[in-house]
């Protein structure tokens, strides 16, 4: 079944500075939606507003056309990978996978280097390994949609390729909203791509639009 996750009418101010206005994005089951934007344009703020953890002047966030003001209270609808480490450092990998109802053995098949590490606490892992665990559990979380803020940062190229494969498989039953400065990885997997600039989102028609909109040189 196809679900939709939409947001529009978002206006966000920090003091007298307007960060976001005229925002519209749509995410659907079976699609990966990318958001690119220069630093400080408000990509993370946009995700936080959609998630409900940041108050905006106005917003409309809808799942299947039903308004949800505080999506963070509905992990069955939306999960959110922030750009920083968020898993409590004293939790073991087994505990994390149990909390998210995930199978650790399936993870080990994809990433054999974790075979003997199920009892490790996450603090003992390297920064990249820790990020990989966080990205994996969010992608595989039992939600209809997941927002991923910089999922490819800190990962090595081989891991990025595997994460892209997992995303490709998972999008059959989920929708993803992704932002990352590794724009070639993002454009590689995205079905829809928005560029956020001057507080507004622009839906791109082709890859050259991201240069036109001043995000990157191709």
């Amino acid at each position: 079944m196809t679900h939709t996750f939409e947001a529009d009418g978002i206006i966000l101010d920090f003091g007298t500075r307007r960060i976001l206005s005229n925002i519209y994005f749509k995410c659907e089951t079976g699609k990966i939606t990318g958001i690119l934007g220069r630093n400080g344009q408000g990509k993370t703020c946009l995700m936080n507003v959609a998630y409900g953890s940041l108050n905006a002047v106005s917003k409309s966030v809808r799942f299947d056309n039903l308004s949800v003001f505080e999506a963070f209270k509905r992990p069955d609808l939306l999960t959110y990978l922030p750009q920083f480490n968020f898993i409590p450092s004293f939790l073991s990998l087994t505990r994390i996978f149990t909390d998210f109802d995930l199978n650790y053995d399936e993870f080990v098949i994809l990433f054999p280097e974790f075979k003997a590490k199920s009892d490790f606490i996450i603090k003992k892992l390297s920064g990249g390994q820790r990020r990989l665990i966080e990205v994996y559990v969010m992608i595989k979380s039992k939600a209809k949609f997941s927002m991923l803020d910089e999922p490819f940062s800190h990962l090595m190229p081989l891991q990025i390729e595997k994460i892209k494969e997992i995303l490709h498989n998972e999008k059959k039953t989920k929708g993803f909203l992704i932002t990352d400065h590794m724009f070639r990885q993002v454009t590689d997997i995205c079905d829809n791509l928005y560029v956020l600039t001057d507080g507004k989102v622009h839906l791109t028609n082709d890859i050259t639009d991201i240069e036109t909109l001043g995000y990157a040189r191709l």
Partner: peptide
């Protein structure tokens, strides 16, 4: 439809999903 422009409609009253 293509999402290139959006029309801001008045926010509908919040509809609650069934409690999780």
């Amino acid at each position: 439809t293509s999402g290139r422009i959006s029309i801001s409609l008045p926010s509908p009253s919040p509809v609650r999903y069934l409690p999780l």
